[in-house]
Design a protein around this nucleic acid. Structure first.
Lengths: 202, 202
DNA sequence: CATCATATTAGAATCTCATTCTAGGCAATT
DNA sequence: AATTGCCTAGAATGAGATTCTAATATGATG
């Protein structure tokens, strides 16, 4: 059920987030003023503060949106994987593909410092990450039980599998590396598989 | 040659950086005011702006200092390694040890993303990272040539070896993981070695 | 030793924003 | 049609980053 008001509220929120994504990635969060956001989103300061509370609320809202979209996409694509090796490689491949398909949002997620988020925003992020870890672990457990994947502390899997490509991507968005993640995804997928493959793996 | 003036300049800079480290890690960068820094460092605003230009200059100066100290420590400890496996494991172990020995600085480095740094600060960071990558690659090249370590794009080694433990540590400082890095260092050292060990390795 | 140039410090004055406040406007419900 | 509560606008406020001016201290030069 989408009343006229609910629809226009959604549209306004989206307009603000889009303006923020553009300004934040090009000029940086600190350098963009509320006035600029108002201009680009075509609204007033009152409207912005009504929807997001404060500037940090916009920044964390955008961050959370990006993380959730990224996580959901991974879980979706894992459904199509059969083997342990396919699944591990998919974690890396999907990350690269997602960056390729969502360049601005990726740039934002990868270049943000989140020490500045409020306590509630951090809690929300934390809970999102926690659920994601659990879902990932749930997917991989059968492979671990069959020893196709090495047994590790549960919290170690995500860092070990996707830490390298994330680190690479972080440097890439800053222009420190030439090749985009999509050009090195197979190298990193291979490394991830080698890092976790167990004795029972083909 | 350390004249009286040079010494007191160094002392003042250090006092400001120490105050910043304390305030930034406890309250966050945005939340600490220049006034607070003045009070804690025992100096005036004029002095701060003379030495660091602006608030961002303090933040990036502290960041650069931390990165350089971390990198130098790694290169020092690599000198004592003999084999490829020792060396790869050392990259992980040293990182954990350094975090353990420099908890505040580590907390600062790990909870910061540098989109907000100025262009010149970013360049300086970039060049520092570039030199570090080159030094690391220089150390590992002999092992790669002997195929004790797999051949990869040069830029991939550091992300693959230290990406996972960095990602783990980032979550740990936010309280998302219970075990400190030093408690899981062997797991991550093992994973790093498996990720890059070549056909010629024992 | 006197003088000058420069590095450093202090703290008041300014000025740029983030945020708050007040007053409406407009969909939905009765 | 009246009422309620969400939503918007834009002016007013206030905090705090930055700039400015003047003073002090160091070291170099003659």
């Amino acid at each position: 059920m989408s009343s006229i008001r609910a629809a226009s509220t959604r549209a306004r929120r989206t307009a603000i987030l889009e303006a923020a994504l553009d300004c934040f990635t090009t000029r940086g969060v600190d350098a963009t003023t509320i006035e600029e956001l108002c201009h680009q989103a075509g609204c007033s300061t009152g409207s912005i503060y009504h929807h997001f509370g404060n500037k940090e609320g916009i920044a964390s809202g955008l961050f959370l949106h990006g993380i959730r979209s990224l996580n959901a996409d991974l879980l979706r694509r894992l459904q199509h994987c059969q083997t342990a090796e396919q699944s591990v490689r998919m974690v890396v491949i999907q990350y690269c593909d997602w960056i390729h398909d969502n360049p601005e949002l990726a740039r934002y997620l990868l270049s943000f410092r989140d020490i500045s988020f409020s306590a509630t925003a951090r809690l929300e992020l934390q809970s999102t990450y926690h659920h994601h870890l659990a879902a990932i672990f749930r997917w991989f457990r059968p492979f671990v039980l069959r020893e196709e994947i090495r047994t590790l502390p549960p919290e170690a899997y995500v860092p070990i599998i996707s830490g390298p490509i994330q680190d690479y991507a972080r440097h890439w968005v800053r222009g420190q590396f030439q090749l985009p993640p999509s050009a090195v995804k197979d190298v990193f997928a291979e490394a991830a598989w080698n890092a976790v493959r167990g004795p029972g793996a083909g």
